[in-house]
C-alpha cells in the first residue's frame, strides 16, 4: 500500500516530539490521571489510615467543608485586585505610547517589580507592612499627626482613625465574615487580604500586561485614530470607539490569563507572609491543597480539592472562549 508523504512524515515528527512528549506524559498527563484516581481514595502519606476506595466521598465532604468555602471566598477576594491591576496596566501603556522621551527608562522601572517578584519581594513587603515600625504605617502616622487629622475628625464626627494592622488583621474592604461565608459589618476595614492585594497590584501593574498593551498600541493603525479625530471625536470618544475595541483581543487574553493565575494563586503569599492567618483569612485554595497534603497528609482529599480547582478553571476558560468567539472578531 502506498503511503502519502504526510503519513510518512509522522515518523519523523514523532522522533522530534519524543523527548517533549515523554516528559509531558510522565509529568503532566500521567499525574493528572493519577490525581483523579487518588481523589477517589482516602490515601494518606502517613499510612495511619488503611487505604480504601472512597469514590465520591471526598467530593461530598468537600461540599460540606466550611473551610473550603471560606478559602474559596478568600481566593476570589484576592482576585479583586486583578481588574485594578489590568486597568492600571492599560493606563500606563496609554501614557507610554505617546512617543515620549525616556520611555525605555520608564518601562524598565515599571517592569522592575515584576521581574524581581518572588520570595524576596514578599519578605520585603512583610517588613513594609509591619504595623508599628514598618515604613507604611510610619508614613500614615506622620500624616495623621502633621495634619492633625484625628483632631479634626474628632471635632467633626467624634471619631478617630488608627493605621491598619495590615497582615495581622482579619478586616477587609467588603466586610466579609471570618467564620462563615457572609458579611459582618464589624469586619470592615483594611487587613491582611487587602495588604496582599495592594502588593499584587504594585507588582503586576507595570508587568507583562502593560507590555502586551504597549505592543498592541504600537500596532494601532493611526488612520483609524485620525479618521475619528476628523469626525470631531474628542480624546475620550477616540479611546472608547477606536482604541478600546482595537485592544479587545489583548484585554481578553489578559483577563483569561489573570483569571487562571488568580484562581491558582496566593500560595507564596500565604507561605511567606502570613502562614494563612490571621484566622485563616489568607488561606487560598492552592494553599489549602498544600496544607492538606503536606501538613495534614490527607493526599486523597487534597487531590479532590485540586480537581475541583481544575474543573473551576476549565469552566471559566470555556466560558471565556465562548464569549470571545461572540464578541471579538479579529
Amino acid at each position: 500500500m502506498k503511503t502519502t508523504r504526510r503519513q510518512r512524515n509522522v515518523v519523523i515528527a514523532a522522533g522530534f516530539l519524543l523527548p517533549n512528549l515523554l516528559g509531558f506524559l510522565v509529568f503532566t498527563a500521567g499525574p493528572v490521571a493519577f490525581s483523579l484516581v487518588m481523589s477517589l481514595s482516602n490515601w494518606n502519606i502517613q499510612h495511619t489510615v488503611p487505604f480504601q476506595w472512597t469514590f465520591l466521598r471526598n467530593f461530598v465532604d468537600l461540599w460540606h467543608d466550611q473551610s473550603f468555602w471560606l478559602y474559596f471566598v478568600n481566593t476570589i477576594y484576592l482576585m479583586l485586585g486583578l481588574p485594578l491591576a489590568i486597568a492600571g496596566s492599560l493606563v500606563l501603556a496609554l501614557l507610554l505610547s505617546q512617543n515620549l522621551r525616556g520611555i525605555t527608562i520608564y518601562r524598565t522601572l515599571f517592569y522592575l517589580p515584576s521581574i524581581t517578584s518572588g520570595i524576596a519581594l514578599m519578605i520585603l513587603w512583610k517588613a513594609l507592612y509591619n504595623p508599628d515600625f514598618g515604613p507604611i504605617n510610619a508614613v500614615i502616622n506622620w500624616t495623621l499627626q502633621t495634619f492633625h487629622i484625628n483632631g479634626i475628625l474628632h471635632a467633626l464626627f467624634g471619631t478617630s482613625v488608627t493605621p491598619p494592622q495590615w497582615l495581622l488583621a482579619t478586616r477587609n474592604l467588603l466586610g466579609l465574615d471570618v467564620e462563615k461565608v457572609g458579611f459582618l459589618p464589624a469586619q470592615w476595614g483594611l487587613g491582611a487580604r487587602d495588604a496582599i492585594i495592594i502588593m499584587g497590584i504594585w507588582i503586576a501593574v507595570g508587568g507583562n500586561n502593560m507590555l502586551l498593551y504597549l505592543a498592541a498600541l504600537t500596532n494601532l493603525p493611526q488612520e483609524l485614530v485620525e479618521a475619528a479625530q476628523l469626525d470631531g471625536a474628542g480624546k475620550w470618544a477616540v479611546f472608547k470607539n477606536v482604541t478600546w475595541p482595537y485592544l479587545a483581543p489583548t484585554t481578553f487574553f489578559i483577563v483569561v490569563m489573570s483569571f487562571i493565575g488568580g484562581l491558582q494563586g496566593g500560595f507564596e503569599q500565604a507561605r511567606v507572609m502570613t502562614g494563612g492567618g490571621p484566622a485563616g483569612t489568607t488561606m487560598t485554595m492552592s494553599y489549602y491543597i498544600y496544607t492538606k497534603a503536606f501538613e495534614e497528609f490527607q493526599v486523597g482529599y487534597a487531590s479532590a480539592v485540586s480537581w475541583v480547582l481544575f474543573i473551576i478553571i476549565f469552566i471559566v476558560t470555556l466560558i471565556n472562549w465562548r464569549l470571545s468567539n461572540k464578541e471579538v472578531n479579529y
Partner: peptide, 8 residues
Amino acid sequence: AAMATQGG
C-alpha cells in the same frame, strides 16, 4: 507585632 522589629 508593633514592638518586635519584624512583623508577621
